Simulated scan of single mutants.
Amino acid sequence: MNPVSTASTAPASTTTSAGPRYPHLQAVIFDWAGTLVDHGSLAPTQIFVDAFATFGIALTLDEARGPMGLSKRDHIRTLLEDAGLQSQWQARFGRASTTGDIDAIYERFMPMQIAHVGRYSAPIPGAVEVLAALRGAGLRIGSCSGYPRQVMDVLLPQAMAAGIWADHVVAGDDLAAGGRPGPFMALGNVLALGLGDVRACVKVDDTTPGIEEGRRAGMWTVGLSLSGNETGLTLEQLQALPDAEVAAKRAAVTQRLMASGAHLVIDSVAQLPKALAEIDARMARGERP
C-alpha cells in the first residue's frame, strides 16, 4: 500500500468510550502553508521565484525554499545573503544589494502573493477532520504564519469556506517583536487564547524555523515530513513516487526537523491525533518539553 495514498490520510481516532481526550494538553498551534493548506507549500515558493525574476535574478525553487518559515521580508533578506544570488545581483546592478533593494523586492512580491495565494488554499487531506476532532477534545486551536496580514486576509476566508479555521491567527508582520525563529508568534497565541501553561501547548510546523519557534516558546513540537516545504511536492506528485523514494525523503526530512528540535515527526497533519496521544502519555509520565 502506498504510504501517502489518500486513503492513508484519514486521521487516527482518539475517541474512547468517554470521548476524545488529551487531559494534559490545552492547545495546538499550527502553521498554515504546508501544514493545514497548500500541500507542498507551493504558493510562497513559486512567487519568490517570480518576484526575483522581475529583477533579472534567477532563483530556483530549491533556493526559494531554503529560508521558508521566516517572515517574507526576512526570507528575501536571507536569500540575498546567499553568495550565488548576491553575485547575480552585483553582476546585474554593479553593486551589492541594499535594504532598499529588499524593500523593492518585497513590494514586488506582495501583490503577486496576494493575487495567487487563493490558488493554493485547498486543505491538506485530513486537516478538516483533525481540527474538528481536536475541538471535540476540548483543545484550543491557535495558528501563525510567515505570510503578512494582507496575504492572510485573502487566504483565511477561502480556507474557512473549506473547513479550515483557527481560534486565533498571528500573521508574519503582526508583531513588532518579529517572527520566526523567535518565539513571539507562538507566544502571541498563548496570550490571545489565555492559555495557562506553554508546556501544555503543541506547535505543529513543516519548516525548521517553525519548529525552532515552538521550542523557544517552551512548547512541544511536531514536524511534518511529507506535506510541506521540506519535501515540496503536491499530493499527486508525492503519490506518484516509488515507495522507496518516499521513504528516503521522509528519512531525510525527519533528520532535519529533529535536528531543529522537533519532539516528533509525522508525515502530515492527518497523523496528528496519534502524535498528540503520545505527547499526552509522555506528560502523564512527568515529561516536559
Results as ranks from 00 to 15, higher is better:
Ser5Leu: 13
Ala7Val: 09
Ala12Thr: 13
Thr15Asp: 12
Ala18Gly: 12
Ala18Ile: 10
Leu25Tyr: 04
Gln26Ser: 15
Gln26Asp: 15
Ala27Arg: 12
Asp38Gln: 05
Phe55Lys: 13
Ile57Asn: 01
Glu63Ala: 13
Ala64Ser: 13
Gly66Leu: 15
Leu70Asp: 02
Arg92Asp: 00
Asp103Ala: 14
Ala104Gly: 08
Met110His: 07
Gln113Asn: 08
Arg119Ala: 14
Ser121His: 02
Val130Gln: 08
Leu131Tyr: 00
Leu134Gln: 07
Arg135Trp: 02
Gly138Ala: 05
Ser143Gln: 09
Ser143Cys: 15
Cys144Glu: 06
Arg149Leu: 12
Arg149Met: 07
Ala161Glu: 12
Ala161Lys: 12
Ile164Trp: 01
His168Ser: 13
Pro183Val: 08
Ala186Glu: 04
Asn189Val: 11
Ala192Trp: 00
Leu193Tyr: 00
Ala200Arg: 15
Ile211Gly: 03
Ser225Tyr: 06
Gly228Phe: 04
Leu235Asp: 11
Glu236Cys: 07
Ala240Val: 12
Glu245Trp: 02
Val246Asn: 01
Lys249Val: 06
Arg250Lys: 13
Ala252Lys: 04
Gln255Glu: 15
Val269Phe: 03
Pro273Asp: 08
Lys274Ile: 03
Leu276Pro: 13
Ala277Pro: 00
Ala277Asn: 04
Glu278Tyr: 07
Arg288Trp: 13
